[in-house]
Design a protein around this nucleic acid. Structure first.
Lengths: 332, 332
DNA sequence: ATGAAAGCGCTAACAC
DNA sequence: GTGTTAGCGCTTTCAT
């Protein structure tokens, strides 16, 4: 297939071809202002015939908003973020907005650099994960004047809009559940908490609730790197090597918990009678494992959807708590 | 937090503040052309002081390429596509390109509409999944003159650039493997093949290779909707209800296969002695299940990476076969 | 109902 | 080494 080299058709050429002025073509195309039906037909005919594709770069420069929505997210490996993008994407497409994204790899410095790069596109809004940003990020966002949505967290101060749920509270709920179920020798297997601040908040909430109930975490195993099923499996193996008599383990998320669960299956450790397993996120796969995973379901797609709606409707600054749901499952 | 209302700082204001001409600021900022060290410092000082953020909308309009790369992908639920985006994203960010995306939901008509919308942003390249597009999509892409990368498939004619692996061949390889292992009563559990043309190509290749070996598929179960672990589990259950004596099942991908495997675990069906399970994709989770999943590993992240590299280097039209790898696993 | 013209903020010749 | 200027393709007054 050969590709044309000659420059794209412009609005001026359409105007010329239709025998009308440029502004008339513009009005017809955006269906804004007034024009006769006959003019409209002539313009549309020319548009069709020439294969005209409006240039939104030029349009954006000439008018106001870019209708570009910038997502600066920590990761694409963790299904949480594709889920959020998915929820947002449908709303944005339906409202003629365009999603743009970059990945920070849970690095706040990188986030700052990526936000800075995004702002050069003059987006309508910047969508971030959580409340922990560098001073520079906040300053740039502030100066940009564009809307900001902080997603997937509620434990902190919002810059503008925030949509999500409380991670700390999810951690508390998890601990309360395990305690209520009678588990006493509880351990934790998690991934790098220094970068994933929301996982840290869950952990903190979990420990706090455990403390309030008069108990304490027996031991914890922190795996380096991102969360993964494999890390969960290895982490549990290591934790049990140190503390074989644990009766329950709280994992930093479902990926990790599935790894732990698989470890139990593979080693004949009865779940939950010998060891209970509890996760976080409520991934679909956890509903279909031989024993459904006990976990917390988070509204990830919904978070994206609501975040996008707030942006396209230019809603006033607000915090939207979408909550979460405990799934009892069969592993705890 | 309050957001500023006054318009963003412009290059002209920076020039004024630094006491130099606009083009000098432009040169300094893009580090292109010549200017004295002293001038550079004065400009940078003004940039810092005013908090100037270059406007890439204006920059793009004035110069050549937008450095926007448009991904029009079938889904974000299927981890395949986030993986591709991930691979591409790192390369694009390192080369000052910006990723934009839309989701077609495996609908060719939607793909056409989304490609049309994308082209209005005058992207450097449009990245698509596979070779099956509507005539309109092809026409628009052709007329746009922008680069096109068709990813994750090799069985078909490329429009411009193509990066991936042969799905048909992967299907063949899977069948050959099962036959070589001695399985004879083989079934298939898949998701909607009319929309996911790559899954169909795998299926076709599988059946063909089975035929060449002198065997035929005993039965198949096609689940409606997208692939999922749950569909795989239900699909296998239904298939076994009809054909209890199957000795192996080929699934449309790892999600489906995991569902099937979980069904076996839950119902005491020995894998692989009673029933073998074979998937596609080589997801990490399949490496950590009690028995590692037998499957085909596909280079998804690599596909995204290479696709992005071809685009940023403006490579000539070509087809890049990244191949795939059989993982023997323990479920077949 | 429609056209002319002035930008939007920047880059790229082209002069000096 | 640096400034001036003419666009890039569109939207948006403002006339008519």
């Amino acid at each position: 297939m050969e590709f044309r080299q000659h420059p794209a058709v412009t609005l001026a050429e359409v105007a010329e071809a239709a025998g009308v002025g440029e502004s008339t073509v513009s009005r017809v195309l955006r269906n804004h202002g007034s024009f006769s039906r006959e003019t409209r037909d002539r313009v549309m005919e020319a548009v069709e015939r020439l294969g005209y594709v409006p240039n939104r770069i030029a349009g954006t420069l000439a008018s106001a908003g870019s209708r570009l929505v910038a997502f600066v997210i920590p990761s694409l490996s963790n299904i949480v973020f594709p889920d959020v993008l998915r929820g947002a994407s449908s709303v944005l497409e339906a409202n003629q907005h365009q999603a743009v994204f970059s990945v920070t790899d849970y690095d706040a410095e990188r986030e700052e650099a990526l936000v800075a790069a995004m702002l050069a596109w003059r987006p309508t809004a910047v969508m971030l994960a959580g409340f922990e940003h560098t001073e520079g990020t906040v300053r740039r966002l502030h100066a940009s004047g564009c809307r900001v949505v902080e997603m997937l967290d509620l434990d902190g101060a919002a810059l503008d809009l925030a949509v999500g749920f409380s991670n700390r509270s999810a951690g508390c709920t998890s601990a309360d559940f395990l305690v209520k179920r009678g588990y006493r020798r509880i351990g934790y297997v998690g991934h790098d908490l220094t970068r994933d601040t929301r996982a840290r908040k869950r952990f903190d909430g979990f420990c706090e609730a455990l403390g309030s109930a008069g108990f304490a975490l027996v031991d914890r195993e922190i795996c380096t790197g991102a969360s993964s099923v494999e890390s969960g499996r290895l982490g549990l193996e290591r934790l049990l090597a140190r503390k074989p008599d644990l009766d329950a383990v709280y994992f930093s998320n479902d990926d990790m918990a599935l790894g732990g669960y698989f470890h139990c299956l593979a080693h004949g450790i009865s779940v939950p009678s010998k060891l209970a397993v509890f996760g976080y996120n409520g991934l679909d796969i956890g509903r279909v494992t031989p024993q459904p995973l006990s976990t917390i379901r988070t509204p990830r797609v919904e978070t994206g959807r609501v975040a996008a709606e707030l942006v396209v409707t230019d809603a006033p600054p607000q915090v939207v708590d979408l909550g979460f749901e405990l799934i009892e499952g069969a592993t705890a």
